[in-house]
Design a protein around this nucleic acid. Structure first.
Lengths: 219, 219
DNA sequence: CGCTGCGTTGAGACTACTCAATATCCGTGG
DNA sequence: CCACGGATATTGAGTAGTCTCAACGCAGCG
């Protein structure tokens, strides 16, 4: 529809770089990627995790100069959406515009939860929350079977998302395993006890707006 | 224009509460307020700080069910904007719609910086970053004179924003004073050495999109 | 003029960090 | 098909940053 072309990325590639200007946005068709921001001394904070269906940098449409980077985790298929097409959509299709806006607001809601995790939750709670969230989101796009889904992050990368060191990431993961909440082998996660996981996390999925009643006006 | 009425709030009042549905949004005309999310056991994370000119909960237009609360810090004057009017705007005024969308994206950009602060910066760096950001934002709306501006947060509230305890908040503030970066008396801040403050913070204001060149397409 | 909220200080505990060594997995080339 | 090398995972030990608890000072307000 508004897509000009489709592009493939190898794992570990930056598709978007902080400080740069862009004239098109990327819609993730397949694969995983993440947004992050680096400090000059090398510290890195992951800002969001994206899977198939996510509009990875819709905000570059309005913000122009990126305030963070986007990198692939796995090989990714991406649909390119020129900003001109988005402008046209806002001129002609109010419903669609609201949909797009809505998707950036979901992103923001997720970021707020991550802020709570970063600022207030213990590493264990926070990590449990992360797995709970990804479980729900992956389920939504049919990436989960039998509680099992691909989760292509190294322990160090998980740590960057949760705001802890790689070593501590390893130790917290061991706690989650010891409590039989999840099983993690290679890049695959199995949720063993969702209820207990959510209890540890203090997880409440309403912020994801999964309930149709919470969907945008004209979904 | 789209405003149905104006409302006054006393300090320390919730204008919006988590889990509730709303049919109107609040545009802050005067005063300070903040968004926050509480954990069942009382831990609280501040998600955003708002001053005159900020659209405090524009996202409730699309999200409907709030994922966090909004509370006044000072007495506040708020313009009420019914969601119906916003819908009408999206139908008839694409430029205005993009403006509104843009403002939610700025919010998101600020939240991303806060995430970096919460996850990666030391308490001292993070707090310096907070003061730098507020200084820029307050300057933008002419709330700063001679490097001095009102900052109506208690030390405990500053701690909730930065993700540290009230006691540690006090100690970090003392360091900022000892380094002669800021002077804090009552609820007023004076920036003594902006350059040094930004250096400690690792502050780069581009994410605020203050540069006219970075403004949205039809600002 | 005595609450009550806020700021300040001290002491001890705990979470998470760093450094560094070792183990394990996996892809590649021989 | 196996050996090697690099990336990833795991472990231990000591440290730094931040937390909690608790006390105390100070100020504004009723």
């Amino acid at each position: 529809q508004a897509i000009s072309q489709t592009v493939e990325y190898a794992p570990g590639r930056d598709m978007v770089r902080e400080h740069d200007y862009y004239t098109e946005s990327n819609l993730l068709i397949a694969g995983w990627c993440y947004r992050y921001s680096d400090l000059p001394d090398g510290r890195r904070q992951t800002l969001a995790l994206h899977m198939a269906g996510d509009f990875v940098d819709l905000h570059s449409f309005q913000l122009k100069r990126m305030d963070h980077s986007v990198r692939t985790l796995t090989a990714c298929t991406v649909a390119i959406v020129p900003h001109d097409n988005l402008t046209r959509i806002t001129e002609e299709f109010p419903h669609l515009t609201r949909q797009l806006w809505f998707s950036t607001l979901i992103d923001a809601a997720i970021m707020r939860r991550w802020m709570v995790g970063l600022g207030q939750r213990s590493a264990l709670e926070h990590m449990a929350h992360l797995f709970s969230e990804i479980f729900y989101r992956a389920t939504l796009v049919h990436l989960v079977a039998d509680g099992v889904f691909a989760f292509p992050l190294t322990q160090a990368e998980i740590g960057e998302a949760v705001g802890i060191s790689a070593v501590h990431s390893n130790r917290v993961l061991q706690q989650l395993r010891a409590r039989k909440l999840i099983a993690l082998s290679g890049r695959t996660v199995k949720v063993l006890d969702l209820e207990a996981l959510e209890r540890v996390a203090g997880f409440d999925p309403t912020y994801l707006n999964l309930d149709p009643a919470d969907a945008p006006p004209d979904a």
